[in-house]
Simulated scan of single mutants.
Amino acid sequence: MTTGTYTEIDGRPALRFVRDYPHSPERVWDAVTDPTELVAWFPARVAFPDLGEPAPGAPVRYSFDEDGDGGTGTVVEHDPPHRFTLTWAGEELRLLLEPLSDGGCRLTFTALLADRDTAARTAAGWEICLEALDSALAGSPVGGPGGSPTPAWRRHYEDYVSTGVPSGAPVPGA
């Protein structure tokens, strides 16, 4: 089952995922911003080369276990524990945390895409990543996602394509 929605924001293709967690915004903030916790769910290793908390304009370095360099990006917004936005490979990743009345929080993750035809492929990838985040926050980490399409990724991809999410971009590792 897919949980993301395809939209356009200021003329750019975008994906939006919403998840509610029984954890405080501070706990989820750590999971989505701390490089030592990002390894449980984010598709690349993340490093902030400048010491201290990331600030707008600060560089971000991405890397992969299998083939090294994952490129660089920039911190766009850093407002703990509410908003964190960074760039990566022509995309902008926005994380918004809102407290819920029961003490939990809502995570809204929006990915502004560089190319429209990558939407289904990217949505399937973020589904896998967010499922890993769900598991990590539930105390049962499954490990970060790999680089090759899995059967679960293919199911998500096919679901997104069948609902009309733009597709057509090559699938790496396929």
Rank of each mutant, 00 (worst) to 15 (best):
T2H: 10
G4D: 01
T7V: 13
E8W: 02
I9L: 14
I9R: 12
D10T: 09
D10Y: 00
G11P: 14
R12A: 09
P13H: 06
P13E: 00
P13C: 04
A14G: 10
R16N: 05
R19H: 12
D20M: 01
D20A: 05
Y21K: 05
P22N: 06
P25W: 00
W29N: 10
T33P: 04
D34A: 11
E37M: 08
V39T: 14
A40P: 02
A40D: 14
W41S: 03
F42E: 06
R45P: 02
V46K: 08
D50Q: 15
D50E: 12
D50M: 09
D50R: 13
L51S: 15
P56L: 09
G57Q: 07
G57P: 04
P59A: 12
S63T: 14
D65Q: 08
D65H: 10
D67Q: 06
D67Y: 14
G68E: 09
E77T: 15
P80I: 05
H82F: 01
R83N: 03
F84H: 15
T85Q: 09
T85K: 00
T87V: 13
A89V: 08
A89S: 13
A89C: 04
G90K: 05
G90E: 07
R94N: 13
R94W: 11
L95K: 11
L100N: 13
L100P: 01
S101W: 02
S101I: 10
D102Y: 13
D102F: 12
G103M: 05
G104W: 04
C105L: 10
